[in-house]
Deep mutational scan, measured.
Amino acid sequence: MTEYKLVVVGAGGVGKSALTIQLIQNHFVDEYDPTIEDSYRKQVVIDGETCLLDILDTAGQEEYSAMRDQYMRTGEGFLCVFAINNTKSFEDIHHYREQIKRVKDSEDVPMVLVGNKCDLPSRTVDTKQAQDLARSYGIPFIETSAKTRQGVDDAFYTLVREIRKHKEKMSKDGKKKKKKSKTKCVIM
């Protein structure tokens, strides 16, 4: 069974824990209790493949930012979460993405942009803004509501699919490099 290491990042209060708990335990946590770091595991079937999701729910508070490099190193894919009623959390996505790329030393890291709290009427981040940002990053965008469960499975499952595509691409690139290195030079 394939294991996928997913990391949920975003500013404090955007609903990272609520999304994760909704996926794992099928219930909505409405009281806000700032996370330092929590880890969850769940076995699911995605596109006919049974897999184990190892999900790291991270601290959004700035005082825990020193811990970010460590979990970013171990993560295979990242859910970059903002709240649709919090423009600052949307603007912060850029910083999370840049930090992930720096730590992973790669421009090509599996990510999904997630606009959470889409059940709320007080939207300050337009869907088109988020779609445009995701398009500019070359990553999928999904709106979710941890409260109603809308888009929750889709967000995590899409990230797994992005990781699969990335692994497939990397193995193809690896095979191309191996083929090239088999060419021999004969000096007579």
Rank of each mutant, 00 (worst) to 15 (best):
K101M: 10
R68C: 12
S122G: 13
H94N: 15
V125P: 10
D119K: 03
I84F: 13
Q99V: 11
D108V: 05
I100V: 07
Y96A: 07
L79Q: 01
V112R: 00
G115V: 10
K88D: 13
Q70L: 05
F82R: 00
D119H: 05
R73S: 13
E98H: 02
C118D: 09
V81M: 14
R102H: 09
G77F: 11
Y71I: 11
Q99A: 08
S106G: 13
D126H: 07
D126A: 07
T74I: 07
Y64S: 14
F82T: 09
A66L: 07
T74F: 08
V125F: 09
E98R: 04
M111F: 11
E91P: 03
V114N: 00
D126I: 06
M111K: 01
T124C: 11
C118L: 08
G115H: 05
E63C: 03
S89Y: 01
F78G: 00
D69I: 01
M111Q: 01
L120P: 09
R73W: 05
G115Y: 09
G75Q: 06
V81R: 00
S65T: 07
D119Q: 04
H95A: 14
T124S: 11
R73Y: 09
D119R: 03
R68E: 15
E107W: 08
V81S: 04
R123F: 08
V114K: 00
M72C: 06
I84E: 15
R73D: 13
F90V: 10
K104A: 12
G115K: 02
R73V: 08
V125G: 12
F90N: 04
R102P: 02
D126M: 06
N86P: 01
I100S: 02
K101P: 02
Y71A: 11
L79E: 00
D126W: 05
T74R: 06
V109M: 05
E63L: 02
S122D: 14
L79F: 04
K117Q: 13
I84W: 13
P121T: 13
R123N: 14
G75V: 14
V81Y: 02
Y64L: 08
Q99P: 00
E107R: 05
E76R: 03
R97I: 15
M111V: 06
D69S: 06
Q99W: 14
E63P: 12
A83Q: 14
S65C: 08
D126F: 08
L113M: 10
V125H: 09
L113F: 12
G77C: 09
K117P: 00
I84N: 15
N86Y: 02
D119M: 04
R97H: 12
A83H: 09
K104R: 13
E63I: 02
M67I: 08
S122P: 10
E98S: 04
N86W: 01
A66N: 10
G115F: 14
R73M: 10
T124A: 12
G115P: 04
K117D: 11
E76P: 01
M111E: 00
E91A: 05
R73Q: 12
L79K: 00
F82L: 07
I100K: 01
K104H: 09
T124L: 08
Y64E: 13
S106N: 11
K104Y: 14
N86A: 05
D105K: 08
R123D: 15
V81H: 03
A83V: 02
E76W: 14
M67A: 07
K101D: 03
K117S: 13
G75Y: 11
